Amino acid sequence: MSAPALVDPGPSLAPHRAARFARHLTLPGVGELGQRRLAAARVLVIGAGGLGAPAIQYLAAAGVGRMTVIDDDVVELSNLQRQVLHTEGDLGRAKAESARSAVGLRDTEVEVTALVGRLDPSNALELFRQHDLVLDGSDNFATRYLANDAAELTATPVVWGSVHQFSGHVSVFWPGRGPMLRDLFPEIPDADSIESCAEGGVFGVLCGVVGSAMAAEALKMICGIGEPLLGRLARYDALSARWDELRFAADPDRRPVVDLEEVAVACRTLSPRGRPDDISAGEVAARLAHGGAGLVVIDVRTAAEREVAAIHGSMHVPLDRILTGGWAPIAEELGEGAVDGRDIVVACQAGIRSARAIDALAASAPTGTALRNLAGGMDAYLAATRSLSRGQ
């Protein structure tokens, strides 16, 4: 199903811009008019990670005039295997700011606004209204459903993508022109129902395939060419090198989205930031740097994750052992009376699995045990240790 051009054309191209985009100007369906539409477009990119990285690069290379990149994460060493926008020189830097700098090196006339933060119910509607199109490269269900609901409320089209291990998905959700995410998957899944990239891994080049496909959908919609993936879920299997397609339709019985109240609940549980049992990564790093008195660190990640990076002296008790055995596997590791007066800091990669572990431990831990959640997990801890090193 074809769709009209999403963006009105901007002013005539300056000679140096016409020269830069010469291969577009001779392309049927794009031409100078399409290039002027691209120059006038305002695109919001959610996430500057695996999917956002290639998408941002190709949107910038195509001459999209204005982009806003929102991401609350920092560049870590393990990101560089797939997040090709960032370099070793960006380690510890906010991904949104790294993305802005990377675009600036490619085209100084593309305007990029870097928002270091998370898309949430307090800012989603305003951000969506300020843009013609949204690319959702987020890595969690709460943000994906927030993007869907904000799109419905603002009539803003969304290009959506996801990757897991060796497979990826792409679709387009355009209110009033096709079915939405909630027509395909009505309910928000549990946050831990699918392994994260850290747990299950992801084939690095797969992000390039899916992120580039997302950029292609965005450019087509801006220019009004081809058929966007409306009512179609494109699926790519990197191991078999095959694309296939699932067609879906709007559910006539689905309740329309009228506010962000439901998704706000999911967003509040997205990250354990703000939990009363939080302990900051900076405090843990500082205390460990001075001998770690009064601290016990329990790492609930997988063995493979610990091979990449682990807190020195931490004990490994995987999350599944805690969910099954409660406090018993911790007692086996620590021995009797070893928790007296000490903070038991539970850590994972981003602070989500550790929060689940604490909830499971609370019922059977000895009375008075000080269970603390490492806010932001290993990602935050590594950034904190780098800050300490720079300050010494």
Rank of each mutant, 00 (worst) to 15 (best):
A357D: 04
C223I: 03
A234F: 09
E88K: 13
L135T: 03
A383H: 11
G31K: 07
A22Q: 12
R37V: 02
V30P: 09
G89T: 01
M221Y: 00
H164Q: 14
A142N: 07
Y236E: 03
L319I: 02
A238Y: 15
S138N: 08
Y145E: 06
A61Y: 11
G313H: 00
E187H: 11
L388I: 09
D132W: 04
S280T: 12
A124Y: 06
D190I: 02
R273I: 11
G351L: 11
A310P: 04
N123Q: 08
P252H: 14
A213Y: 12
M315Q: 03
V300S: 03
E32C: 12
I330Y: 06
N373Q: 02
R301E: 00
A234N: 08
E227T: 13
P157F: 08
V317P: 08
D253A: 14
L77V: 08
L323T: 13
A281C: 08
V103H: 14
I46T: 04
V308I: 15
D359T: 14
G89A: 01
G341E: 10
Y381N: 07
V64P: 09
W327K: 13
A102H: 04
A142V: 09
S167Q: 15
I352K: 10
D90Y: 03
G204Y: 06
A375G: 06
G211E: 14
D136V: 15
S12K: 12
A365C: 10
G231A: 08
E245F: 01
P28K: 02
R37I: 01
P15Y: 14
G337E: 05
G391V: 10
T154M: 01
R66A: 06
A5R: 15
D192T: 13
A41Y: 10
L181A: 00
Q130K: 13
L295Q: 01
Q130G: 14
Q392T: 15
M378L: 15
A18N: 07
W160R: 11
A94P: 15
V158Y: 11
G274W: 11
C267S: 08
S167N: 12
A309Q: 15
A309K: 08
E262D: 13
I188E: 10
A238T: 13
L44M: 07
G204A: 10
G208H: 09
L184S: 13
L184R: 07
L6H: 06
M1W: 09
E307G: 15
R247M: 02
V84R: 04
D72K: 14
E76V: 04
T302K: 04
V172W: 09
K220D: 06
T369R: 02
D90G: 11
A151F: 13
I311S: 13
P186T: 11
S193Q: 12
